[in-house]
């Protein structure tokens, strides 16, 4: 629990715990054999198998599309909820709304999944279209919107509250203020919310599995069923691709954030020096 040797080695041990399983996945994706845990020669055979796997490519395409659509919808619904939470103050039902809007985030997914299945298969609501892609999209939007709401709400609350008033004072009508001042200022939170929603949707198995019909197999649903029907190094190859893409994206975002932070600090320091 201090800066010394003990603390450092604990840091290292936990990081090994976090990364060892992933590293193993990556290593054995290059095996030439059939077994997922032994290197029988090095080859790219399973990557080729991945490329030839039409079922998997279809599922990936569906997941990407669904992720993008759900993330976009979640940002719209979630930001509107955040505006209601952060700017409306108290009105009858405001506490109920605050509770409801973040509830999807804290309830177990099985419960949310079951509740939405009951909605989409309800005999009195045939116009919802039953289970399928639309149902999964709805579920993902509902779940992700809660995260977006929290993210955007906290940004709205820490945003300089005079900015919007200053814009009004300078003659800008209220609705326009929202789009020319508020949205650009909270843009980083919106972007983060979109990415988080996209990831949640790409990663979700429970909701997608409960709400899927035969025509709507997302990538996690397909991977899950493959894990039940014997392991193949093809999944390792898929994991390697996913981990690589995600790591590049996350590290790039991280770099961007750090350098922006550094630039801002330098600018502030420069301004301090030439006070006036």
């Amino acid at each position: 629990m201090n800066r010394g040797w003990g603390g450092r080695s604990w840091l290292l041990i936990v990081f090994v715990f976090l990364y060892l399983p992933i590293t193993c996945l990556l290593v054995f994706s290059f095996t030439g054999g059939e077994i997922t845990t032994r290197l029988d020669g090095v080859s790219l055979r399973w990557y080729r198998a991945l490329l030839d796997d039409d079922e998997l490519k279809r599922a990936l395409g569906l997941s990407l599309t669904l992720g993008a659509l759900a993330a976009t919808a979640a940002v719209i619904v979630g930001s509107a909820a955040a505006v209601v939470l952060a700017r409306f103050g108290a009105y009858p039902g405001s506490r109920l709304f605050a509770g409801l809007s973040t509830a999807p985030m804290v309830l177990p997914e099985v419960v949310i999944g079951l509740s939405l299945v009951l909605l989409f298969t309800h005999p009195l609501l045939p116009w919802l279209g039953g289970r399928g892609v639309v149902a999964i999209w709805t579920a993902h939007t509902t779940l992700s919107a809660a995260y977006v709401a929290v993210l955007v709400q906290s940004r709205l609350l820490e945003m300089d509250r005079w900015l919007e008033e200053a814009a009004l004072d300078l003659g800008c009508p209220p609705l326009k203020v929202f789009f020319v001042i508020t949205v650009p200022v909270i843009a980083p939170a919106l972007a983060a919310g979109w990415l988080l929603s996209f990831t949640l949707s790409m990663d979700d198995f429970v909701l997608a599995a409960m709400l899927s019909d035969p025509g709507s197999t997302t990538l996690p649903v397909l991977v899950f069923s493959r894990l039940h029907h014997g392991l193949k190094p093809e999944i390792n190859a898929l994991a390697t691709v996913v981990v690589t893409v995600v790591s590049i994206a996350v590290i790039a975002a991280h770099r961007l954030m750090l350098s922006a932070q550094r630039r801002r600090m330098q600018a502030v320091a420069a301004a301090r020096r030439q006070i006036g």
Partner: peptide, 16 residues
């Protein structure tokens, strides 16, 4: 970082 990668694949890693 692991949190952003697939949950299922992380569980799969423990299977092997």
């Amino acid at each position: 970082l692991p949190f952003w990668t697939s949950f299922l694949l992380r569980v799969y890693a423990w299977m092997s």
